[in-house]
Design a protein around this nucleic acid. Structure first.
Lengths: 228, 228
DNA sequence: GTCTATATACGGATAGAC
DNA sequence: GTCTATCCGTATATAGAC
């Protein structure tokens, strides 16, 4: 599966994501009409990501947000209780979604080596589709309150275990060379992370190309690369 | 050279670094006695890194800093003109130093393959010694004013070109396989970065071990790894 | 050189009209 | 549901005593 196919498959579920956010935060949202909520939440989230990724969430004032989102200062507070609450909502929003997508794509593959490829590709495709969110999530993690922070760490740990599990399994199946699974998993994560943290550096490289590169590098190290 | 040797060699030049900062910022510092300046600048920089790395530079108040550094609010402003000025001073402080260290260590090596190893090792050793500064530098880069920001980007680009240059040279000398130099350089940078961004994840791994791992992975991909 | 006290402004959040 | 006007706390930066 290349990026274009992936994009088409995933686009359907955008509105779904906002409905999920809505049901998780029903008590802090004062608006009745679902249609209004979804429309404005999307504006608010987009504006928050845009401003925060330029100058940081702390430095973004509610007045900045009001202007960028085209919603008055007072009206914003009908959608969340506090600025801190907004940060939490945004962080939570896509985590479950990403986890489901990764699991789905990996289940489709039969062998460990193919599962690893699917994991790398899918993660890159997801971070390409939602680059501002991934970047925001990484940069603002330390500003979360303890409870939300724990969720973020757990989510990160989940990705790590997933990768490490695949590497250990491949080693046991004798399809991968005997490498340090923890360090190798971390190296893969570092390359996945680089894609969304330094997005502007990759202007002339497509996600498909980058995915191919990472897979080749990893498979060479694991001794499963075909030819070069 | 392992980390312990490197550490001993480099320790001497700590005070030197502060003298450099001092001469670059003579006009914004109102204090006369050099000894006082160096002593207090070190307190201020240490405190700034500590607080900022916990909750971000924007979120750090001057009162936080005053307390952590053990210097009153008023006295702080004898060492810099504004909070923004402090950010700039800190960011600038170690860049020249790092560049010199990298160049020195690479010059000692004769072959391209050894220069690449020296580059990887030295960068990891430097970021191990000054982890809080490296982390701060990465996380707060977007809060710099345009002028300082340009310096940060240039410095980053310098590292990139250095790596890419080595990879291209090695390819021409036929000691490295024919890989994409830009992407490979970026992958190496991603792994170097991971070391200081996720320092807490590597609790049970030494820098020497990590350096060995990165070098092995890179050399396997470049076709120069001895055995595994 | 360092302190305390304070001027001044700006940010988050709410009240209440429409 | 959305707006404007405003309250109130807190932040940066400075003045002036010691």
């Amino acid at each position: 599966m290349d990026f274009e196919e992936f994009r088409k498959m995933i686009t359907v579920s955008r509105e779904e994501r906002y409905l999920e956010t809505l049901s998780e935060n029903r008590e802090s949202i004062q608006i009745k009409k679902e249609k209004t909520i979804i429309k404005n939440l999307e504006k608010i989230f987009k504006a928050t990501l845009k401003i925060s990724n330029q100058k940081g969430f702390q430095a973004m004032t509610m007045r900045d947000l009001s202007q960028e989102a085209g919603i008055s200062l007072g009206a914003l507070y009908a959608y969340f209780k506090s600025k801190d609450d907004l940060l939490g909502m945004l962080q939570n929003q896509r985590r479950a979604f990403i986890r489901r997508a990764l699991e789905n794509e990996m289940e489709k593959e039969a062998t460990t080596a193919f599962k690893l490829r699917a994991m790398i590709r899918t993660h890159l495709f997801l971070s390409e589709l939602m680059q501002p969110w991934f970047y925001f999530s990484f940069m603002e993690a330390k500003n979360l309150n303890p409870e939300e922070r724990k969720k973020a760490i757990d989510s990160d740990l989940w990705t790590e275990r997933l990768l490490e599990g695949l590497l250990v399994q491949g080693r046991e199946e004798k399809v991968f060379l005997d490498r340090d699974a923890g360090l190798t998993a971390e190296a893969i994560k570092a390359m996945l992370q680089d894609w969304y943290l330094k997005r502007s550096k990759f202007r002339n490289v497509s996600v498909d190309q980058y995915a191919g590169f990472v897979i080749e590098l990893v498979e060479t190290y694991l001794g499963t690369a075909t030819t070069h």
